[in-house]
């Protein structure tokens, strides 16, 4: 295993797609600072991924907690050269019935949280004059979905944020990209009713849902030296759904 002597901060890394991203990044030599609110899941993941998975229990919407964690990571881990904004929540409801709380929470975590995390760690990339920032959006941010005005707005917001940040940082050798997963096999899609699942499948040219590891592979590629000249893009990983 190679050792990059560099840290990637991954939010929502305790389980699901974030866990797979952490696992993949560790396998190519990154130290991963795994940020999540789910303390138990973080512990379990740390046991399975070993010492290069460094768990930090934090609510990324809380600037004070985040500053403390950023300071601890700065002191304890190799220099931060990667940021993966993966943490996300859903609070689905048709807009007619959506409460302001449902709207606020999803925007706060998915979009503002990504902004806060990026701001908390970007200075070390600027100093290093290299690094990668990848935000996990969603096909829903590109296509929209009934019942997800909040989620889709947050995921589309990540695209605008990343494209703008790219214009601030590209000259520093820092890449800023977005990965837009399609329908992925996760706990969330497992719970879908059979007919909804069937409806999704009928729309995906590849004829199957994606795997979390397939998102992780795309993220690791965008963070690799092979992708140094790829910046400001939205990479759909969706079995052809948006094409």
């Amino acid at each position: 295993m190679s050792n990059l002597d560099a840290t990637a901060v991954v939010t929502g890394a305790a389980r699901g797609i974030g866990f797979e991203i952490a696992k993949k990044l560790i396998s190519v030599g990154w130290t991963v600072a795994a940020l999540d609110m789910l303390e138990e899941d973080l512990k379990r993941s740390a046991e399975s991924l070993g010492e290069n998975y460094r768990p930090y229990t934090v609510n990324i919407t809380d600037s004070k907690q985040l500053a403390e964690v950023a300071s601890a990571i700065g002191n304890d881990l190799p220099v931060v050269k990667g940021i993966v904004n993966n943490a996300g929540v859903t609070r689905d409801a048709l807009m007619m019935r959506m409460s302001e709380d449902q709207w606020d929470l999803v925007i706060d975590v998915n979009l503002t949280g990504a902004w806060k995390v990026t701001q908390a760690f970007m200075r070390s990339l600027i100093r290093a004059r290299e690094g990668s920032i990848v935000s996990i959006s969603s096909v829903v941010g590109l296509l929209g979905a009934a019942g997800q005005t909040n989620y889709a707005a947050s995921k589309a917001g990540l695209i605008g944020m990343s494209k703008s940040l790219n214009r601030e940082l590209a000259a520093r050798g820092i890449t800023v990209n977005v990965v837009a997963p399609g329908f992925i096999e996760t706990e969330m899609t497992e719970k879908l009713p059979e007919e909804v699942r069937g409806d999704y499948l009928s729309k995906i040219p590849a004829g199957r849902l994606g795997l979390p590891v397939e998102i992780a592979e795309a993220v690791a590629f965008l963070m690799s030296p092979s992708a140094k000249y790829i910046t400001g893009i939205v990479l759909p990983v969706d079995g052809g759904l948006t094409t």
Binding site: I126, R127, L169, A171, R172
Partner: peptide, 11 residues
């Protein structure tokens, strides 16, 4: 110095 350098320097 560009604008980002200036911000970095001030910080």
């Amino acid at each position: 110095a560009d604008s980002l350098d200036m911000v970095d320097l001030m910080m």
